[in-house]
Lab assay of single mutants.
Amino acid sequence: NQASVVANQLIPINVALTLVMMRSEVVTPVGIPAEDIPRLVSMQVNRAVPLGTTLMPDMVKGYA
């Protein structure tokens, strides 16, 4: 099963993503693939993302 990107903490809106904010985990439904974590660094989410939430492509500005 493919690992997805999961919030490692509350990720506020309009804050640049850092490695420490994200972890990889096998979850259902599948979200952004874990291998895209380096690409996500410095991008921003378009809504607050609670701890443990799977990041979906539509949550990250400029990802999709």
Rank of each mutant, 00 (worst) to 15 (best):
Q2W: 10
Q2D: 10
A3T: 08
A3D: 05
A3Y: 10
A3H: 11
A3W: 11
S4H: 01
S4I: 02
V5M: 01
V5Y: 02
V5E: 00
V5S: 03
V5R: 00
V5L: 03
V6K: 03
A7R: 02
A7D: 01
A7M: 04
N8V: 08
N8M: 07
N8F: 04
N8W: 04
Q9L: 11
Q9A: 15
L10W: 13
L10R: 10
I11R: 02
I11W: 02
P12K: 09
I13E: 15
I13V: 12
N14H: 14
V15P: 00
V15A: 13
V15T: 15
V15G: 10
A16E: 09
A16Q: 11
A16R: 11
L17N: 00
L17A: 00
L17R: 00
L17G: 00
L17Y: 01
L17D: 00
L17I: 13
T18K: 09
T18E: 12
T18L: 07
T18P: 00
L19N: 10
L19F: 09
L19K: 11
V20W: 15
V20M: 12
V20H: 11
V20E: 14
V20Y: 15
V20S: 15
M21K: 01
M21D: 04
M21E: 00
M22D: 01
R23W: 03
R23T: 09
S24K: 10
S24D: 07
S24A: 14
S24V: 08
E25N: 08
E25K: 13
E25W: 06
V26C: 05
V27C: 05
V27I: 06
V27F: 02
V27R: 15
T28G: 07
T28R: 10
P29C: 04
P29R: 04
P29A: 04
V30I: 12
V30G: 09
G31W: 02
G31T: 02
G31L: 02
I32N: 00
I32G: 00
I32E: 01
P33G: 06
P33M: 06
P33V: 08
P33T: 08
A34Q: 05
A34D: 07
A34C: 05
A34E: 07
E35T: 15
E35K: 15
E35Y: 11
D36M: 14
I37H: 01
I37S: 04
I37G: 04
P38L: 10
P38D: 10
P38V: 08
P38R: 14
R39M: 14
R39Y: 09
R39P: 02
R39H: 13
R39N: 15
R39A: 12
R39K: 15
L40W: 03
L40D: 03
L40P: 00
L40N: 00
V41Y: 04
V41M: 07
V41R: 06
V41W: 03
S42D: 12
S42T: 12
S42Y: 07
S42P: 00
S42E: 10
M43L: 08
M43I: 04
M43S: 07
M43F: 10
M43T: 04
M43D: 03
Q44P: 11
Q44T: 15
V45C: 05
V45A: 05
V45T: 10
V45S: 08
N46R: 09
R47F: 06
R47Y: 09
R47G: 07
A48T: 14
A48W: 15
A48V: 14
A48G: 07
V49E: 02
V49R: 02
V49I: 12
P50D: 10
P50I: 05
P50T: 08
P50C: 06
L51M: 15
L51T: 14
L51H: 10
G52S: 06
G52R: 04
G52A: 06
T53R: 11
T53G: 11
T54F: 03
T54A: 05
L55A: 01
L55M: 12
L55V: 09
L55H: 02
L55I: 14
P57H: 11
P57Y: 07
P57N: 05
D58H: 12
D58I: 10
D58W: 13
M59T: 05
M59E: 02
M59L: 05
M59N: 06
M59P: 01
M59Q: 05
V60K: 01
V60I: 11
V60W: 02
V60G: 01
K61A: 14
K61Y: 12
G62E: 13
G62N: 11
G62S: 08
Y63C: 04
Y63K: 03
Y63G: 04
Y63Q: 04
Y63M: 06
Y63A: 04
A64F: 08
